[in-house]
Computed example of a mutant assay.
Amino acid sequence: MNARKKFRPLTWVLLILWALVVLFPFYWMVLTSIKDYGAYNAEYIPSFFTLSPTVENYVQVFTEVDLGRYLLNTVIFTVITTALMVFVTILAAFAFARMEFAGKNLLFTAFLALMMIPSELVVITNFQTITEWNMRNTFLGLILPSVTSVFYIYLLRETFAQVPDSLYYAAKVDGTSDWRYLWKVMVPICRPTVVTITILKVIECWNLYIWPSLITDDPKYYLVSNGIQEIRESGFGRANIPAMMAAVVVISIPLILLFLGYRKQIMSGVARGGTKG
């Protein structure tokens, strides 16, 4: 006990230093976003503070680039994609965890093997398929490739498997259908994991860059990731870093608030899904 008390101050010092290292990029992002364009370019040595902050960069990203529309598109894409993904994940996880059918274990093993396929290969095949179906520059083309996730199905399946079989057998004796048992018993019991995969999917959709850049070239369907690229390449030129940082701050705020509000559910859901027995 004495040894633990002896090293406790050192532990706190190391944790504080690590927190500063992690948080510094966010500080630098906000600081750059409130610097004047000319003042930023005039800095030969980077300054760690500014005496003349400005909100001009934030005004520019909403007036000279249609960032508001891109935010709306991203919200629509994120909500629909996440809802479909959670629905598909719950059904697939329940099938692998509770239902009995021929070749279930072999199929689940093959399903997990899909995680070994590089994502770049999947992007290529998805792009070819969506193009052949004439779904480029549509929300449907953006959404369809993102409605399934092997990892989330595996995570939820492991959580479903922890629910005692006796509950299932008791429900069947009472005449409860599998569909009703799933939504009235399994999902409420495993709510932390369901909330976790929902939040993680929201973050994934919000930060998606490669697929929207490939499948859309019409500004009507741009997401926020395309908007940042537009600021860099055509909105203000490659040198306007303060405007880009202002856009990144605006885009990051919803995710930061989401994580801070549901951090306990995320941690408990991941811990529960990774523990069996």
Rank of each mutant, 00 (worst) to 15 (best):
Phe160Gly: 15
Glu132Pro: 00
Gln128Asn: 04
Val173Arg: 00
Asp165Gln: 09
Tyr168His: 07
Ala161Lys: 02
Thr159Pro: 05
Lys172Ala: 00
Tyr168Phe: 06
Trp133Glu: 07
Ser166Lys: 13
Glu132Leu: 15
Leu144Glu: 10
Asn134Gly: 08
Arg136Tyr: 02
Ile130Leu: 05
Pro145Val: 06
Leu155Glu: 09
Asn137Leu: 10
Gln128Leu: 07
Ala171Met: 14
Val163Glu: 05
Ile143Arg: 02
Leu144Asn: 10
Val147Phe: 06
Asp165Asn: 10
Ser149Ile: 06
Asn126Leu: 15
Gln162Val: 01
Asn126Trp: 14
Asn137Val: 15
Phe151Ala: 12
Thr125Trp: 02
Tyr168Ser: 01
Gln128Trp: 01
Phe160Ser: 15
Tyr169Pro: 09
Phe160His: 15
Arg136Asn: 03
Thr138Val: 09
Thr129Asn: 10
Arg157Leu: 09
Val163Tyr: 04
Pro145Asn: 14
Leu140Asn: 11
Thr131Glu: 09
Thr131His: 10
Leu140Gly: 15
Val173Pro: 06
Asn126Asp: 14
Pro145Gln: 12
Thr138Lys: 12
Phe139Ser: 03
Phe151Trp: 13
Asp165Leu: 14
Thr138His: 11
Thr129Pro: 08
Leu140Asp: 11
Leu156Thr: 02
Ser149Thr: 07
Leu155Thr: 09
Tyr154Val: 02
Ile153Gly: 02
Pro164Cys: 09
Phe139Met: 03
Pro145Ile: 10
Leu140Ala: 13
Thr129Ala: 11
Phe151Ser: 07
Thr125Asp: 07
Ala161Trp: 01
Ala171Val: 13
Gly141Arg: 13
Thr148Trp: 06
Ile143Gln: 02
Asn126Pro: 14
Val150Asp: 15
Tyr168Asp: 00
Leu156Ile: 00
Thr131Trp: 02
Lys172Trp: 00
Thr125Arg: 14
Val163Leu: 05
Ala171Cys: 15
Thr159Leu: 08
Ile153Arg: 12
Glu132Met: 12
Asn134Arg: 08
Leu155Met: 13
Leu140His: 13
Tyr154Cys: 07
Pro164Glu: 08
Arg157Tyr: 06
Leu140Gln: 12
Tyr152Phe: 12
Trp133Leu: 13
Ser149Val: 10
Asp165Ile: 11
Asp165Thr: 03
Ala171Gly: 14
Thr131Gln: 09
Pro145Cys: 12
Ser146Trp: 14
Ala170Thr: 04
Tyr168Glu: 01
Tyr169Glu: 06
Tyr154Lys: 04
Thr148Ile: 06
Ala170Glu: 01
Ile143His: 02
Ile130Val: 06
Thr129Trp: 04
Ala170Gly: 03
Thr125Gly: 14
Asp165Phe: 13
Met135Val: 02
Val173Asp: 01
Ile153Tyr: 08
Thr148Cys: 05
Pro145Met: 13
Ser149His: 12
Phe127Thr: 04
Ala170Phe: 02
Val173Met: 02
Thr131Phe: 11
Val150Ala: 13
Met135Ser: 00
Ser149Tyr: 08
Ser166Glu: 10
Leu155Ala: 08
Val163Ser: 02
Gln128Gly: 07
Leu167Lys: 00
Ser146Val: 12
Ala171Phe: 15
Trp133Cys: 13
Leu155Pro: 11
Pro164Leu: 03
Thr138Asp: 14
Glu158Thr: 07
Thr159Ile: 09
Val147Asp: 04
